[in-house]
Amino acid sequence: MAENKGVLVLCETKEDKLASISTELLGGGRKLAGDLGQELAAVLVGSGVGNLAQEAIAYGADKVYVVDDPLLKDYQTDTYVPVLEKVAGQAMPQVLIMGQTSIGRDLAPRLAFRLNTAASLGCLELAIDPSSKKLLQTKPVYGGNAQAVFITGSFPQIATVRPKAMAPLAPDQSRKGEVVTVDAGLDASAIRAKVLEQVPEEVEGIKLEDAEVVVGGGRGIGSPEGFQQLEELARLLKGAVGATRPPCDNDWVPAGAQIGLTGKIVTPELYIAVALSGSSQHMSGCSSAKTIVAINKDAEANIFREARFGVVGDWKKIVPAFTEKLKELLAK
């Protein structure tokens, strides 16, 4: 039997380009492959994706497996799992990494069970253990109260990685690599769970994940009107508004505004946390912000252990005064 070797990265595409998560994974995967002294391969799955193979090579892949089929246009569990099973059988990697995205979350566990191996989802860090050469998979557990490092006993060692946890390399268009075409070999009748339509959420202004400044509100904001005040502050700072889970569950803000372990992950320059306690679950989604500022009436709230600057008091008095003062300062 052939020996498992190398690192394989599942590349997702977005608007006919490699998704940012994929260039990040290629950057991180390059490092892992280097530490193993082995190759980095990428796999592109989709419809009309073959022309992106060179881009994957430019971002660090030595070899690219391309599986191009109209049935692979949308992610569907029943098409992607057998395709990845086939590619994994051909590439025989030691390590297989994907993004912690709606695709990776669904695909990685099902594929791991099919291949009789295991996966770790939502990793913050991946490293090769210098002595055993095994993949050390670090991820938040207990809602972010702790982190665990897992080791998988079998190959491929599968992991999904959170967005922004790894850095892409500068693309080098002159890099050379091998492109391998793999036939999907799919039968449409095998699709039991069929995607009928995809509905993107409507976002006004800047997307939460891309914003340099995020104003996050918690249960203490109390109403949709309260969030309008946060919107005003966010607009002034050309940022976006996010929230903890209760405001989303109460429909004060759209579900897409949720930041945390089960929501979005944001990495802004500045995170202004208003009337939120700073639960581990929420902090899992924003603790990588460069500067965290807390506004909360409870001086004992956990958010003050996470923040760099804080004001203790009623946000209803603080946010308008803060917004006014910033208007004045930014006008100068």
Binding site: V149, E306, V311, I318
Partner: peptide, 29 residues
């Protein structure tokens, strides 16, 4: 199929600078 190699609590820096003022509006400013 997996081994728990390590379990730990991430260290929090906990160096929050509390900004004060005569009343909340001034603290905000």
């Amino acid at each position: 199929h997996t081994k728990l190699h390590k379990l730990f609590q991430p260290v929090r820096e906990g160096k929050c600078e509390i900004i004060e003022g005569e009343g909340p509006e001034e603290a905000a400013a």
